[in-house]
Computed example of a mutant assay.
Amino acid sequence: MSLKPAVGSQDHVQGDDSASIEIVEYGDYQCPHCGNAYPIVKEIQETFGDQIRFVFRNFPLSESHEYAFSAALAAEAAALQDKFWEMHDALYENQSRMDDDLFEELAIQIGLDIEQFRKDFESANLEQRIEFDFESGIRSGVNGTPSFYVNGEKFDGGVTDLYQLLKESTE
């Protein structure tokens, strides 16, 4: 399966447009597998540096994870203050204590304007944004989290397999 739509200006991207390897993750901030993948993705980024362009799309599995959608809202609200990646990292790093109180605490920690954060957190636009990511995941064949796409094609395997593949392909 291929990625639909392709990565564009609406996406959260780390890395250079000219990177040779584009990795898109569909993730859920409360999913334990995504939590386990998070440090490995960081390691991939550190190891391969400029060769990697990393994209994160929301795929909250709300039926299984009570706080997944709220966590995605928190990340999107932070994005409106140019702090998406700070919130993304903070959510994964505090995954074990995820509850309704955590989002504001992290917003304060990463230096967001808290009144603006509260307002944005309630915004219907952000809900639509998350639903757009989720629907693009379904169209792209995502059937669980985390799901990875490498250069537009679905990667069938976990993040450890992905790391191994990248190491082999760049040796």
Rank of each mutant, 00 (worst) to 15 (best):
T145E: 12
V41W: 06
L165I: 08
G27E: 02
Q10C: 10
E122P: 11
S123N: 11
F56L: 08
S18R: 13
F148C: 04
K42P: 13
A75Y: 09
N58M: 14
D133M: 05
Q164T: 14
V13Y: 00
F132E: 07
V142L: 07
S140C: 05
E115I: 13
F134W: 06
E25K: 00
Y29L: 04
Y149H: 05
I138R: 02
E122V: 05
D100A: 14
M1W: 10
S96N: 15
K154A: 15
F56I: 05
N36L: 15
G49H: 03
Q164C: 09
E105K: 06
I23W: 03
T160P: 01
E46A: 12
V55A: 02
F103L: 05
A37N: 01
S9N: 13
F48R: 03
P39R: 01
G27Q: 10
D28C: 03
H12D: 06
D100C: 11
K42C: 13
Y163K: 05
D133S: 01
E63P: 10
E46G: 13
E104H: 03
Q10V: 08
G144L: 09
K167T: 08
M98A: 12
R118I: 04
R129E: 10
A37G: 06
C31S: 14
D156K: 12
T47E: 03
N36M: 15
V13K: 00
Q30R: 05
E104W: 05
T170L: 13
S62A: 14
Q45E: 15
Q10N: 15
F56V: 08
S62G: 13
E25A: 02
I110N: 01
G152Y: 00
N143D: 15
D16Q: 10
Y92A: 06
L106K: 02
E135W: 02
G49I: 10
P60G: 11
G35F: 06
K83D: 13
K4N: 12
E122D: 14
V24P: 05
F134D: 02
C34W: 05
A72E: 05
H65L: 12
L166G: 04
A74E: 10
E46Q: 15
D100K: 12
R53F: 07
A77G: 06
S123H: 01
Y38R: 07
T160Q: 11
Q14R: 07
E153K: 08
D100E: 15
P39S: 06
F132C: 00
K4Q: 12
T145C: 13
